[in-house]
Structures are given as C-alpha cells and as structure tokens.
Design a protein around this nucleic acid. Sequence first.
DNA 1: ACGGTGCCGGAAAGCGCATTCCCGCGCACC
DNA 2: GGTGCGCGGGAATGCGCTTTCCGGCACCGT
Lengths: 339, 339
Amino acid sequence: MGRPRLQDVAARAGVSLATASRVLNGSSRTPAPALVERVRAAAAELGYVVNAQAQALAKARTGLLGLVVQDISDPYFSSIAAGAQAQARPHGLQLLLASTDRDPAAEREAVDAFAAHRADAIVVVGTRWTGDDDAALAEALGRYAAAGGRAVVVGQPLGEAAVVRPPNAPGSRALAEALLGQGHRRFVVVTGPDRVVTARERADAFTAAAEAGGGHVEPAVVAGQFSRDGGYGAAAEVTRLARDGAGRPCVFAVTDVMAIGLIAGLRDAGLAVPRDVLVAGFDDIPTLRDHVPALTTVRVPLEEIGRRAVLVALGEADEAGEADPALATQVLLRESTGG
Amino acid sequence: MGRPRLQDVAARAGVSLATASRVLNGSSRTPAPALVERVRAAAAELGYVVNAQAQALAKARTGLLGLVVQDISDPYFSSIAAGAQAQARPHGLQLLLASTDRDPAAEREAVDAFAAHRADAIVVVGTRWTGDDDAALAEALGRYAAAGGRAVVVGQPLGEAAVVRPPNAPGSRALAEALLGQGHRRFVVVTGPDRVVTARERADAFTAAAEAGGGHVEPAVVAGQFSRDGGYGAAAEVTRLARDGAGRPCVFAVTDVMAIGLIAGLRDAGLAVPRDVLVAGFDDIPTLRDHVPALTTVRVPLEEIGRRAVLVALGEADEAGEADPALATQVLLRESTGG
DNA sequence: ACGGTGCCGGAAAGCGCATTCCCGCGCACC
DNA sequence: GGTGCGCGGGAATGCGCTTTCCGGCACCGT
C-alpha cells in the first residue's frame, strides 16, 4: 500500500533497476525502445512518482533553489520572487522560500536551513545592514559556498557571494537630474533608518546629484521605519520644513511605499501634493500605478532582477553591477512632482 | 574536502555513528552528557551541516511544505504566503513555493513536483475554475493524499482535500447590507471571467443580499480579466450605466485591484468617485490603504488564512468554512461609497 | 571464419542518515 | 552472592535511487 518504488516498476516491466532508472530519469544512456515502452507502461500503471529525495542523495544535486527575502508580502520582494520563479521553472528547479520579516538573524537561519537541504544555490534578496548584523550571514553563505554551493546576493556585496546590484545610485541620480530639469531646486530626502544600506545608497546618490546640479538639499529626514508607516511618520518633519522655508520643497522618499505613507501623512497635516509639497518615490510598485496624485518614481525592473539572480546562481549569467544595461531604470515624472 | 558527514563527526568524537546521530538529530534517547559534549564539539570543529535529504530518506519525512499560489506578485497571494511562512517556521518546516501564473496546468505540475519531493503537505491557494480545468489538479492531489500526503486547498473544495474557505459569501453579504444601510439601492457588480469561481461566489452572494434587502442589481458587468486591467476595461460599460439610469450606481468590484482599475477607468472617462459613481472592493489590500478616494472594501484576514491552511495541513486545526469565526471579515465603509 | 569494437542490460556499491537489535555493564532486589 | 532488569553504546540494515563496472552479444572489418 506504500508508494511504488522504482524497484517495483522494474519488476513489473521485467527489467533491472538500472534499466528502469535509465528510462525514467537517467540521461546518459537510452535503453532499447521496446524496454522503454514496457517501463513507461509499468510506471504509469503503478502510478509511480520518483522520489526526488533519494535522487538527490544519489546524485548530489537536489534541484532546489533557496530564495531568502525580507518580506514576501512587500511588493518589492514578491515581484523579485515572481521573476525568480519564472526563471526557475524552465530549469526544473523548485523554489525554497524564506521570508525573514527583516530580521538579520532569521536570514542566517534560513541560509543554514537551505544549506542543510542541500539547495543547489541560494539567493539572498534585500538590503544589507550597516554594523555587523551581516557578519553571521556572510559566514553562513561562505560556508555554504565553500562546500560547493552557489551563493548570490541581490542588494549589496557580501563576502564572496556573487552580487546583483539593483540600480539604486543610477536611478536616484537620474531622478535628481529629471527633477532639476523640471526646475526644482529645493530638495528634501526622506530616508530609512541608518542601518538600511539601500536607503542610504539612494539618499546619497540623490543628494550628490541634486547638489551637483545646483540644487539645495536640506538635511535628510530619517524615518523610523523603512515602510509606509515610516513615511507617514516623517510627514511631521516635512510639514515643518514646508512651512518654514521658501517655495515648495521637492521630497524624495527612498521607496514608493514610504512616499505613499508620506503623502497620507501630509494630507492629514493639511498639506496637499503637489500643491504644497512635491513628492517622488522609487521602485514603481505596480499596485500604486493608480495612486492619486500619480506618483513620480523610478521604475526598477524587479522581475528582471529576480530572473537575473537565478541565472547568476545557475552560472548562466554574470554578476550585475549598478550600471548593468539589462537592469536599467526609467524615471517616470508624474503629477506628484508637478506633472 | 567534501562536506563532513555524520560519520566523520562520530569518528572525531570517538563514538559510533548511532551515538552521533542521537546527539545531533535524534530524539528518542539521550546519550551521556560527556558524550554529548564531545560530539557537539566535534561537529562544531568540522563545521558539520546535517544533510536533510539523507535524513528525509531515512525518516520518510522531509520537513517541506509545498505552497502553490496563482501569482506571488499579487498582494492577495503574497499576504497568504506571508501567513503560511510565519506559521511554518516555528514548526521547522521549509516552504516550497510555486507561482503558477494562473495556469491550471502549471498548478498540477507544481503539485506533482512537490509530490516528487515528498513534501509533507501541500497547500494549493487560489480560486478554482469552472469546467474541468481542475480535474487534473484534483487527481494529482488525490494521488498525493492516497500516498500519505496531506492536501489542503484554500478557496473552493476540490476532491478529497481539506479546504479553508475564504469568507467570500459572508463578506459580500455583509458588504451589501452595509451599503443598503447607507441608503444605496441601485447596484452594479463588476465580476471576473465566468470561469473564476471566487469572482462568482462574491458576485452571487452580493447580488442575493442586495436584492433581498430591497436593492436593484443591474445585470453584471463581466470583466475580461480578473485583474486591475480587467477593472479598467469594465469602466466603459459602467460609464454607460451611470449615464443612463437614475441616481449614482453603487458598483461592487469583486476585488480591490479590479476596483482600483475601475476607478482609474472611470476617471479617464470623466466620471469621479464618489461624485458620479460609488465603488466598493474586496480584500483590503494593505498597499491600497492610502488610495484616493479611500476605498470601501471588505477586510479579509489573508495572513490568518495562510496560517490556518498550514495548521490544517499539519493536522493541528480543522478545516475552515466560510463562517469560521477566526476568519471573519470586516466591512470598511470609506469615501468611495460616500463615506 | 575469427578477433575486435561497440552496445546494452544487469549486478552491486554506494549516497548520508535513522533506527532496530543486540550486548555489556551496573544496580537493586531477593 | 546470584539473578534479573534497565540503561547506554555500537553494529548492521535499509530508506530509494544513480552509477560505475562487467559480461554477453551482435556486428564490423580483415
């Protein structure tokens, strides 16, 4: 009553285990057509389902790809995951997913768990942290790679792992230049907590480009969280700046979801966008396409980043730097910065 | 230079394989403290990482939980996935994820792949299809369950699998009643393609409740796709209805993302919400919380549904019907239906 | 006609671990 | 002081499959 084994299929087809294996799974040699037919028939009749675990043990390859993201319910990560999934399927890889809730310790645990499952490759997606939160993760990935696994990080470099760099700096620079082109000169950056490297990359590149282009950038507003609520919370400080200084400030919130929260907070404070304050975001989250006011943002090819990470993990593509043409951003100027 | 095996750890600690296994993984018996210490030390020195594949083969349990969703980049599914992940981790289960791009054939293939990997349980999330698109999936899940796997579907019942029913009908009924309570009487339902059972469940329950409460429900508008673009495309027909009849129609779009698309389409057609048309959605997608106008919708405990599905898969909870109190919906009346 | 060259099928040795069974020891009890 | 029992450690078996390796056969060339 248990599951049929390959042995059972072989017996029913009147062939050896080796032949059955060659017919159903093997690749190096192809048995005679008559045997192939018999084995296939026997397998079908028995409802045979290969045991990937046993196969993995024998072949030292599991067909598993570990994907570690910081929050799968965040559209940024789920878009990347969708791209990874799309690329994994045609390669016959199954995705092992871990969503870490932005906890560096959980990231490390996920990598260790995937290593235990002997995933053929591991892709870790998400911002690195300043300080030494990453040390344990780097070590875990290092051990994994030393044992023959392929490690890829999407975000910032970490240890020896191959890296796919989302175009944070180029995108932020392009955004600054586009806003300068619209005539804006007074900028405010709403960034995430200090330890979030991605937030810093975007903020720094934007600030540098804005100042290089003759703009004035106010001291950055540091949001308490790297999220919608963080953006909302930053509204108070932005409101103060808007009421103090001269002219409408043009605010760059380093992610779309922060920008959305910021706009909501401004509205609750009695300020309208773009009437009183201009706001731009980053990422071009699909669900926010119909936001009112339409949000100026930078489109990041998230799915493509996911696909690329998988290809790198498979050794079929090279690492991607911030300037990689396949991962180029696109600035989308919309109503929130004055149209 | 290969990975250390348990055998290597045992040798280094001067104990037998069995003892090492008992120390590091086993549970039935605990060796003497001195030995435990020696084995642990040896494992640490060697950098031993247990081979989950080998363990799975020997124990006939993999610690894998298969999760099949229709589109991981859709916030509906990614929220459920987040809940599933949160529930899986404390149980020491790893998530095997498949995103099928809403292709019934891909759903079946994913189930077969998970069965091959001997996942301890499989959860299939998403609407069923009318017609016999589901037959193959039902069969695959049936085979899997017959071989001892635990199968759970989130959505509509399918074969013998345990089912967690999102509260589509209760939520839709409650929404209709709330809208009636606001005084609305003229309703339009924007539903998805006929084959999408979830769309039909919501539309039917809403229609029945609205009519039972004395409302008038126009013939349903069938969107071409179960998505934002489907909602956008339905705007033309809704515009016609709004211009024809008497009074502002109150439109129920069966998902938030369709509602958002609809509102965008209406805007492009020159109609404002709620000035000319009222619109309500379903799901309460977090990212849309700051939409303007604020969207009347039905909050569905998506993460909780994900958690529950995992618990059912683990045999630690019972199936959940549409009226399950733990999965209750909440109607959120907001500006899009007149506040 | 004979030795040689491929092919093709089967037997068997693992892959890394859990687990059953067995054995030896020390203790309590009679 | 002897018997029985409990406990802790080790040898061996098997989980289901892949993959060498080997033997036999047919077919080729000379």
